[in-house]
């Protein structure tokens, strides 16, 4: 990863429209405000322990139009969504939201970590993001808890029937 990032940027890999594409999406509107002060990276808890994850760099690469490098990169998925960068950005860029927008676009390309696929499939099947063990459901009564509210997969599917990503997950699950 580190080596790949050192590769020189070629003019041919720059997509000058990329930043406008991001700025049109909800959460990405303020991308162009970033003046690269680095508050996001210096306050990022993940950046402290990661050798590759740098929010400032992701924002700059996005501004430059390095679309494939940004969207195909594993580091995009390291953000913990703690929103420290969003709250502290002096330019109000909403850094975590820009990263979320980028992740959504990466997901459309099929770049999705396994954990998200599993949670999406579970939600479509049961309403819950995890499969709640039967033992846990049965144990509730003995510890004085009310029955667990049921999911309504049929109704959930109906509300999501026009969302591209949901269709994608359902197909995979079949």
């Amino acid at each position: 990863m580190a080596e790949k990032e050192k590769e020189r940027i070629k003019a041919s890999e720059i997509d000058p429209k990329f930043k406008y594409e991001i700025a049109k999406m909800h959460g990405g509107e303020k991308l162009m405000r970033c003046f690269q002060c680095g508050t996001c990276t210096s306050d990022c808890p993940v950046a402290r322990f990661s050798e590759t994850y740098r929010p400032r760099q992701i924002i700059r690469m996005t501004q430059l139009g390095l679309k494939d490098r940004v969207l195909n990169s594993d580091t995009l998925w390291l953000c913990a969504s703690c929103f420290t960068c969003t709250d502290r950005c002096p330019q109000d860029v909403e850094v975590a939201s820009v990263i979320r927008v980028l992740r959504n676009l990466a997901a459309e390309r099929g770049c999705i970590p396994q954990v998200f696929k599993e949670q999406a499939a579970s939600i479509l099947a049961s309403g819950y993001a995890y499969k709640i063990p039967d033992l846990r459901i049965k144990k509730r009564e003995s510890v004085g808890l009310p029955p667990l509210p049921r999911g309504n997969p049929e109704s959930i599917r109906k509300t999501l029937c026009n969302v591209g990503f949901a269709k994608h997950i359902e197909k995979k699950g079949e």
């Binding site: 998925w77 969504s81 979320r100 992740r103 959504n104 997901a107 999705i112 998200f116 949670q119 999406a120 939600i123 309403g127 819950y128 993001a129 667990l148 509210p149 049921r150 999911g151 309504n152 109704s155 959930i156 969302v163 591209g164 990503f165 949901a166």
Partner: peptide, 13 residues
């Protein structure tokens, strides 16, 4: 009835 709040899927959709 219940479904997940949606947060876990915000990164993907």
């Amino acid at each position: 009835e219940f479904n997940c709040c949606g947060l876990p899927l915000d990164p993907v959709s």
